[in-house]
Nucleic acid binder design. Sequence first.
DNA 1: CCTGCATGTTTTAAGCTTAAAGCATTGCGG
DNA 2: CCGCAATGCTTTAAGCTTAAAACATGCAGG
Lengths: 160, 160
Amino acid sequence: MDAETQLAHAPPGTKDSLRLWLRLLTCATLIETEIRRRLREEFATTLPRFDLLAALDRNGEGLTLGDVSRRMMVSNGNVTGLATRLEAEGLIERRLDAEDRRAFRLRLTAKGAREFARQSRAHEGWIAELLGELTATERAELHRLLGRAKSSIRESLDTP
Amino acid sequence: MDAETQLAHAPPGTKDSLRLWLRLLTCATLIETEIRRRLREEFATTLPRFDLLAALDRNGEGLTLGDVSRRMMVSNGNVTGLATRLEAEGLIERRLDAEDRRAFRLRLTAKGAREFARQSRAHEGWIAELLGELTATERAELHRLLGRAKSSIRESLDTP
DNA sequence: CCTGCATGTTTTAAGCTTAAAGCATTGCGG
DNA sequence: CCGCAATGCTTTAAGCTTAAAACATGCAGG
């Protein structure tokens, strides 16, 4: 029994869901690859570094490594390494948390804030450019449907 | 000037595009993380291995490393390493290409084909489950709009 | 108080990923 | 036929990523 035949026997919607997922993944990969390339060429940095700076930029009071790990949806060991490198480059600083002696609090340095502002401005432009052929209506509708998809995924992850 | 103020001065649509991208990325990451987890737990394998087997499954006559690299949208050095590991596990085989002595041709072994059939069946089910709350209409519309997004991205990548 | 579980972080080993440099073969234009 | 750019693959160094194990601190209930 080949793949085609299997799909014919699968519950209705299986084939559609698979095609939808592959297209979603293609879009995400195309954008992500291009963003990584531009970050490297124009700012000699990487996407995870940019994402960590972005998280700190949105939280001026600082974040613990665990906070960052949850926001970025990556493992906490991962954040340890990223933070070590960014600290060595002088873009962020680690401070002992006054209230919890197990925790550090990460903050942008002045240099880090300046650097992120430059990168962030460029980043916004790149995304607007890549999605620029969509009309405002299409963007709104796509945003709404992706919200529905997100709900479906979270629901499915929470229930089992 | 803070991030909020900057966005207010950006061309119209910039803010929407950014939000759209973040939501798209969230959906892709949620699904991908779950698929990686299940491949590891249920089949002791990884997503790139699965993707390489899938590419070969769709092309019974075999693919060169370069073909695979283009289809998977990854570097060719990457495929070298993956193929080496999968060959060591007996799931694929490398054959000298009869027509081009620089190239190899990768094929699934019988064992690899059996193993991929099991994984593929499960994979379809996982995706259908994760996107199961969407109606057929929502899936179709989302697929269509992602097609528009894909065109916009490719257009933008091709023109500069 | 103290026991035990939860939380915050780091370390380790393994695998994935890339860009760049390098080697071999092909194929084309002169 | 010769030179040489294009193509196919591998190697290397660096960084990213994870799960699992380890260790410290916090906290709550007995």
